[in-house]
């Protein structure tokens, strides 16, 4: 055994109890190297202490408790999945369809109203144009003979009109 093998054996002693032959080899090593004896003693004592640590008594119904736990978790998951489905259903087509239908109906009513208003307005414009066209057909060009005089009259300041009115009165 060399130094590194001794260190390895100490590591092994921490992990498990040494076999008879391993212990004998370690004892021989510390016989030749007394400075290593305290460490070996400490490690073996600690190892013995670790090996002697009390084990917990396993409850006889442990497996049943595990299955209970599994079933409880699965039940919770089932309920959660169900809730998700219910929510999905609640906010699914049954939830949205009436809302979309109402909104669609409102849009259609507004559109129909606008269409009727627009159609009425167009009819009025068409009727006005037709009246103007008729009037244009019946207009006598002689009426426009005094056009310039009439135009000038309309440009006379209002004050003159008022003076004329006063004189007449």
């Amino acid at each position: 055994m060399n130094e590194s093998e001794f260190k390895e054996m100490l590591d092994t002693a921490w992990r498990r109890r040494l076999t008879e032959s391993e212990l004998e080899a370690a004892t021989q090593w510390v016989g030749r190297h007394p400075k290593d004896r305290p460490e070996l003693e400490q490690v073996l004592a600690a190892s013995q202490g670790l090996a002697g640590l009390p084990g917990v008594v396993l409850p006889s119904n442990f497996m049943a408790r595990v299955w209970d736990g599994v079933e409880r978790v699965e039940r919770v998951e089932r309920v959660e999945r169900m809730e998700v489905k219910v929510k999905a259903r609640a906010f699914g087509w049954r939830f949205w369809l009436p809302r979309f239908a109402s909104a669609g109906a409102a849009v259609m009513i507004v559109a129909a109203g606008w269409w009727r208003y627009d159609a009425g307005r167009r009819a009025e414009v068409a009727s006005g144009i037709a009246t103007a066209a008729d009037a244009a057909q019946t207009l006598d060009p002689a009426m426009l003979r005094e056009f310039e005089a009439l135009k000038v009259m309309s440009e006379v300041p209002a004050a003159v009109d008022e003076e004329l009115l006063a004189a007449l009165q």
Partner: peptide, 28 residues
């Protein structure tokens, strides 16, 4: 300390000096 100390009578160099249950308790 530990409620059920399991003494391990395994051989170690200082076994003569140690009460195993006490050792286990201290290690615990």
């Amino acid at each position: 300390g530990p409620s059920r100390p399991l003494a391990d009578p395994g051989a170690f160099l200082a076994s003569d000096h140690l009460a195993s249950s006490e050792l286990v308790q201290k290690v615990d």
